[in-house]
Every structure is written in C-alpha cells, then in structure tokens.
Amino acid sequence: MNLLGIHHVSILTGKAEKNFEFYTNVLGMRLVKKSVNQDDTSSYHLFYGDAKGNPGTELTFFDIPMLAPTHPGVSSISSTSLRVRDEESLQYWKKRFEEFGVTHEDIKKRANRNTLAFEDFEGTKLILVADDGEDGVAAGEAWSETDVPAEHGIVGLGAVLLRVRNQKPTARVLTDVLGFEHVDTYPSVDGDGLPDVHVYSTGEGGVGAEVHIQERPDLPKERIGRGGVHHVAFRIPNEEEYDKWAEKIQAAGLMNSGKVDRFYFQALYFREPNGILFELSTDTPGFDVDESVDSLGQNLSLPPFLEDQREQIEQKLRPLTLKE
C-alpha cells in the first residue's frame, strides 16, 4: 500500500482574475475546474492542471479577496515545483519570464536536476524542474490551446519543499506512517551556510513523488496569506486503499478530519508535527466525472451535494470574469 506521489497543491490568492491570467496566459496551464470552496461556498476554488486534468498535475487556489500577504517562515510549504520536459524548456521559460516581467532566478541544480525558480504576482514560490528523461512517476500532457509550445508546456507537479525548525518529527511521519524513503540530500542554493535539503520519495519515485525538507531554526513561523500554500495532497489510487489509509492514519494517533467526500476525489486531512497540513486524495473518480474533458473548467461546477443550493451559492459569489 503505497502513495503514488503528489496529487495537488492548494494555495491562497487574493485576486482570482489576475490569478487566472497568470496561470493560463503566462504559464499556459489549463483551468480544469471552476468550483467553490466546499468549506466556505461564498468563495471560489480554481483548479489548474494539464490537458486532461490528470491527478498529479493540479495547482488549486482558494480565492479570498483582500487577504493580507504571506509572511514567510517555518512550518510551511515554502515552494512547489512544476515539471517541464528538459533543460531546453527551462531556457524557453527563462526568456518568457523576462518578456512577461516575471521575477525569476538563473537555472540552478537542485537534487541534481536542472531547475528555474520564479514567483507569481503574489509572491508564491514556484520552481520549474526539468524531467530530462528521468524515470519515475509519469508526467501529464501539456495543454495545447495556449501560445506556449507543447514541447515546453507544464506537465505536472514536482516536489514540494517543506521548511521546519526540526525535521525529525516530520520525517518520521513521512517514513513510518506514509511510507516514504529518504533517498538523497543536496546543498541549499539559497545562500552560503544554510542547512542541506533532505529528499524523501514514494511510489515509483522521481520528482513527481518527492517531498524535500530543510531545517531552518533561524526563521520565525510562517503567517500564511495570499501567495501562501495551504496544503499538499498525496495520491491514493482508489477508494479501497483510501479506506485502509484512513484506518492507518487513525491508528498512528494523528488527529485528522476523517473521510471527506469532495466528489472529484475522496480526501483525508491531518497536520504533521510541525503543523503543515497534509491531505490524502484518491485519483478517482476525477475532474471529468461531471464534465467532458473537452469542456473542463468552462462552467461553475458544484458537487451533487451542493447542487440543490446552486441558486443561493451563485447569489453569494462575487462576479468573476475570467478572460483568456
């Protein structure tokens, strides 16, 4: 019973319109689901992914207008990786970022991979990472209806970087409970004298199945706001294994949400000892359960248990105009 890799990463935004413009028009990702935060149906929840909305490709955003900025620190998911084909793609993106005025670094090695770190308009820390033919969890399919050439398109999620004061309790949950293995250590590229980064891997391995951890006892605790990462979700193949994972998390003594039906996937939430929110999510049934693949993201989608409240929900939602 192994987790397959990263399912999705959820982030906070204060401006859904500008968020949509950046992730579709600049990054060339596809809006695969326009829905609502099921825990607060007065706000939108946007999902961006690959051409088919495959598991392991989605960045999701909770829209909270007027949200204060994030104050970075520990107990945080401090960066999220996005996969591209190879180093040539990184060169393409470096040039594109310069054209669009996107804040970015030079191409650097992280975990012996070619990477390009950048930020969105709210300061969200993102890293493009080149697959360069590496074995591991399969990538998705680049969205072709964009001006980003398909050969350079974003094809999925890569590793997340966790920053914590003490990595041991977080590592213990990853290895003893979730079944990850410690597979590598690499030097920090953020400055001289900073602690190394530890790499933990699950499933078939590769960048789509990794969590990176860095100890930073010198930093304050993060105060999350716009641009901050709310949680990371890990992939479970189906509902049968989901039931077993729910039992395992409970048996491990981790306080958790219990099983939560999100309709597009089944979920379970818990915080690891440093306070970072983890989620376990099923690959099934998927984002095309209520829309065809061709029409993903075109309309406001609600799960069946909210459908009878559609009129009230739509009345509470602020107008949202998303322009290609």
Rank of each mutant, 00 (worst) to 15 (best):
D308I: 07
S75G: 14
R223H: 05
F234M: 09
S35K: 04
A159F: 13
H212S: 03
G258A: 02
N256H: 15
S292A: 12
N37F: 06
D50T: 06
G179Q: 11
W245Q: 08
A171Q: 15
I127T: 15
D131F: 02
E272S: 15
P149M: 03
L31C: 07
D283R: 10
Q315P: 06
K33V: 00
E307Q: 11
P195Y: 06
Q298R: 09
V36F: 05
S201R: 14
P303Y: 10
D40V: 03
D294F: 05
Q312W: 06
F270T: 05
W93G: 10
L254H: 03
A130D: 08
G133P: 08
D192Q: 13
V102P: 08
I224A: 03
I313R: 13
G133C: 09
A150Q: 11
V26D: 10
A267C: 06
L157A: 00
I11R: 03
N299M: 10
Q266W: 09
L27V: 11
I276F: 05
T57Y: 02
P319N: 10
L306A: 01
F20G: 09
F287P: 00
H230F: 15
P55Y: 07
G156T: 05
A111I: 03
P55E: 12
E134S: 14
A51K: 10
I127A: 06
F61W: 14
L126R: 00
Q38W: 08
S79A: 05
G297T: 06
L280R: 02
K108H: 13
D40A: 13
G153P: 04
E141K: 02
V211I: 11
K94E: 15
A68P: 01
V197Q: 03
R113W: 04
S188G: 14
T321N: 14
R271A: 12
D218L: 10
L219T: 00
G133H: 04
V229E: 00
H152C: 06
K221C: 09
A139K: 08
S89G: 02
D39Y: 05
K33M: 03
E314A: 08
P72L: 05
L194C: 12
K34C: 07
E324R: 12
V207Q: 15
H45A: 03
K52I: 04
S257H: 01
L128G: 15
V189C: 09
E279K: 01
S79T: 01
R226E: 14
V211S: 11
K52C: 03
F270Q: 12
L3I: 13
V189E: 06
L322K: 11
R172C: 04
R30P: 02
I6S: 00
R30N: 00
V199K: 08
L126C: 10
L300M: 06
L59C: 08
V74F: 05
Y44P: 01
E87D: 10
S144H: 01
N166H: 13
I213D: 00
V293I: 15
R163N: 13
S81V: 07
I154H: 07
G258W: 08
I77V: 13
